[in-house]
Design a protein around this nucleic acid. Structure first.
Lengths: 269, 269
DNA sequence: AGGTGTGAAACTCTTCACAGCA
DNA sequence: TGCTGTGAAGAGTTTCACACCT
């Protein structure tokens, strides 16, 4: 099935932007905290601060869900918690399987954040026979031979892959064949899946590399700022390749700059 | 500040788009794999496939780094590996501390992807005295009392927070005060940091919630398709969310108080 | 007043399509 | 000929600013 059903014709009323969807869990968490403190209503300004975004963005995001606020007052916390939960599909139960119970898989199995939302760890699966039957986070590990059976019996549609990269694709293929249509991939590899299957990936090393890029730039900016102050202007256009010699600006750490203050006009975050 | 204050002068030379930076690690991984197989050159088409993006995007991305390809041929693998590594700052050594050695922290400590790039786990830090001295992934855990000393002695500028949410902000504050300027946060909480400090967050439960949203929509689409086939007539502007059925308060539904009662969303933080 | 909801402007990112070089 | 590099068009996202409701 899935014949070219890729289009986006439908009444665009249901078209919540992806960027907004990605922030809903953030709002939900902040709202939940407010709810626990029995705060009845909250303004976009306050909620935005708690969620770490700006208020205009938050209001725009909520406007895609409907008009759930009251002018001059704010948003009803409980009501909004309910609406967002529903929108995200958290009012229903989502059985999840975790495949690959190594360090990471075990950590995921014990992660409270899963259970606390609508997610339920339906099974832990590992290919190592020595693991079979051993309880991890209170759940007995099952052997991967039974993967298909587990998926279909529990009606699992979300799978988490925490295996080594080398076997991730084949695990993925089996999950998909068994009926899983959403995959959270922790293996550092690109998974290919048929249309209609969603994959999200979390890659620890990639996150660190992005940080390193910015970290390096900070160091470079300091130097640049100095150079600029000393010389006049003129930014070197695109570093010249060839020179493999150019030792990277060593140094790091030390020299903490107290107040951020300056921030040169050379490209902020 | 309300009034426009256009940053970014002209120069654009050093302005690599954030979206591009986020993909560089992906390209680097694919290139590294090619390099290991001693593949000398690769076309944008091939590399894009290996990295899971489309070729136009890849070429555009590389164009921000400079002209490193050869028309009619492709890109030199080794050269590109070097250029991207340099751009990301991976040609230098980045000592990293991991704070919070629970399940997740231990998994991170043992994660091969760190060491394989320029990252070196300089220290593991935990607040539990019972952990102190115990080796995890071959590295002895140190007590958090020594956090400041460790950071400054090793010149650490990148910190990973894998503590419970409740203490993440205070750990963050100490890291920043000690000189850390980039933080990778696994705790499900919003960290506030001074200007000049970068924070990236990885939130497992958020990723799952996003998947759930799409998963739910798939179910809804099936129902919708059926309904469409059956009826196929006047579309009510509103639009039914989720699984069609259900009592969906049409948009700004009149009474906001109605559904308040059943708020099923449980979950504490 | 106080604060939401939202057009419109500004900005960023992606995709197209093709000139131009090896 | 084959493939890169890139201007330009298009799509998506963020920010502004203010009308409008309570």
């Amino acid at each position: 099935m899935a014949t070219g059903r890729t289009h986006r014709p439908a009444t665009r009323s249901r078209g919540i932007p992806e960027a907004t969807v990605a922030r809903l869990p953030l709002y939900l968490r902040a709202l939940t905290a407010l709810s626990e403190r029995s705060v009845p209503t909250v303004s976009s300004e306050e909620l935005a601060a708690a969620a770490g975004v700006n208020s205009a963005k938050l209001r725009k995001d909520f406007s895609y869900l409907g008009s759930y606020g009251t002018r001059g007052v704010g948003y009803d916390v409980e009501y909004l918690v309910y609406q967002i939960s529903r929108e995200l599909g958290l009012t229903q139960d989502w059985p999840v399987v975790i495949v690959g119970i190594g360090n990471l898989g075990a950590a995921l199995a014990g992660y409270g954040g899963f259970a606390s939302r609508g997610f339920r760890v339906a099974a832990l699966i590992d290919a190592d026979p020595a693991m079979t039957g051993r309880p991890v986070a209170g759940i007995p590990v099952q052997h991967s031979d039974d993967l298909e059976k587990i998926i279909s019996e529990d009606g699992v549609s979300i799978g988490v892959i925490a295996t080594p990269a080398g076997v991730a694709q084949q695990v993925c293929d089996r999950l998909v064949a068994a009926g899983v249509t959403s995959i959270l991939n922790f293996a550092p590899t690109v998974l290919s899946v048929p249309d209609g299957v969603d994959v999200r990936k979390v890659d620890l090393s990639i996150e660190l590399q992005i940080l390193a890029f910015h970290e390096q730039r900070k160091a470079g900016e300091e130097a640049e700022a100095e150079a600029e102050a000393a010389a006049g202007a003129g930014v070197v256009a695109a570093s010249a390749p060839g020179a493999g010699a150019a030792v990277t600006p060593g140094r790091k750490g030390t020299d903490r700059k107290g107040p951020d203050g300056d921030v040169p006009a050379v490209m902020p975050a």
